[in-house]
Design a protein around this nucleic acid. Structure first.
Lengths: 234, 234
DNA sequence: GCCGGGCAGGTTGTCGACAATCGTACAAGC
DNA sequence: GCTTGTACGATTGTCGACAACCTGCCCGGC
């Protein structure tokens, strides 16, 4: 029934309004930090970055302000901008905040009558995780894990939870990239994600919150155990 | 016992590194928005603001980027910056996010053995609320309410929850300022805050979460009922 | 050998000006 | 009367350059 003439369907050809340069630059730098291109502690020179991105220092500084506000960068007056390095306390804090945000998002999602699309997206993310795990691709596994949690929060329909989650997930990737996780126990990881999805599908709030909190606690232990093996060898 | 000589006590004459002007400007604008100086929908011209604050457009734009990232301002390309106006969905979303953040903060606080200082600060905030309620000062009451929740999250010791809470509390003030709440039912309000403090003092997690969620839900209803009286007059 | 002053290098912080873009008002045409 | 085209005003987006600042190193003096 949809007309093939372009002027009939005008509803979905709209957004030519490109975002501001600062927003684009911020996304680019954020992605680079997330990928590990800029390891924690790296100093980011403004002139070099501006030249590499092909913009002036003005928009670049605006983008940097956003990243500093998000907590990804640390600014020292007349010294420079540095990629924040996260210690053990930061790892715990990131996962504490993530637990709070994702728990709220999941409960919000459970209140909706039709959770079919959300469950489908989560299932897709799990499928991607399984493929990555089978292929032994740690980066793809982390990507799929990232997508799973991003979709979970996005499906809640809360703009603020979504905004918070975005920053927290980037920090999560920073933790993982910094620790160079080599052999993730993907079996437990996959099982936990499947349980989360099933709990959402069936509407079991109690199970969902319990598994979610356990999932986050497991992640913290996994990261910190790898990071500090000489702590308690007993 | 504190020496009167300035060079004796060097421990607390601390960092003179004033923050960047962009941060100062951002705080100033944020406070102005919170106070209601700039009502929602107001367009903020860069040249006028820069002239009024005595800074150039560069630092001001950097500050604006932070506020846009926080969701307090809305930026339209080549149009200008506007103070975001919050609708009913935004009010619900703000309180949803606040519930998530403050619940997590409270649970974190409950895990600490010594909650004395935190309880003391919350009690001080409640005292301020009582004084404001007795004096009929709605602004002071809102300030004290703000302080109570800010202290609650700050006492948790989580930098990320604290950062999120700061933005959310500003948005809360925007909701209240926009709706010009004239006669707040301060009795229930005070009782809820006292119960929250007591639950934290005694370590009753179940009571705390229940009262907190009820407190947030009450606030939403209070705001939306006042905002939309002609909905159901029956 | 040790300490203080001074200098150079590089970085950020700030400013003013130019160019691109958008909204609006007005006039012309159908 | 309604639509269309155009000119104007105002605002933002961007750029380059100057000034202030901090750090580290070198040198002279003790």
């Amino acid at each position: 029934m949809t007309g093939s003439s372009p002027e009939i369907r005008m509803g979905d050809l709209e957004p030519i309004d490109r975002r501001s340069t600062a927003a684009i630059v911020a996304d680019r730098i954020r992605a680079a930090i997330m990928r590990g291109t800029f390891p924690p502690g790296t100093q980011l020179g403004e002139v070099e970055l501006a030249a590499r991105l092909g913009v002036s220092r003005g928009p670049l500084r605006e983008a940097m302000q956003r990243l500093v506000a998000e907590g990804l960068l640390r600014s020292e007056r007349h010294r420079g901008l540095f990629v924040r390095d996260l210690d053990a306390a930061d790892v715990r804090d990131v996962y504490t905040a993530r637990t709070a945000v994702e728990r709220a998002a999941a409960l919000l999602l459970l209140a909706e009558p039709d959770r079919g699309p959300a469950v489908a997206r989560l299932t897709a993310a799990i499928t991607a995780m399984e493929a990555a795990a089978a292929a032994g691709d740690a980066v793809a596994l982390a990507d799929a894990d990232h997508d799973f949690h991003a979709e979970l929060v996005a499906a809640s329909g809360s703009p603020r939870l979504h905004r918070m989650s975005r920053t927290l997930l980037v920090e999560t990737r920073m933790c993982l990239a910094a620790l160079q996780q080599t052999a993730p126990p993907s079996e437990d990881l996959l099982a936990e994600h499947r349980t989360l999805r099933d709990a959402l599908a069936t509407g079991d709030a109690e199970l969902m919150t319990r598994v979610l909190e356990a999932h986050m606690a497991d992640a913290v232990n996994r990261i910190l155990d790898v990071a500090t093996p000489p702590a308690l060898p007993a």
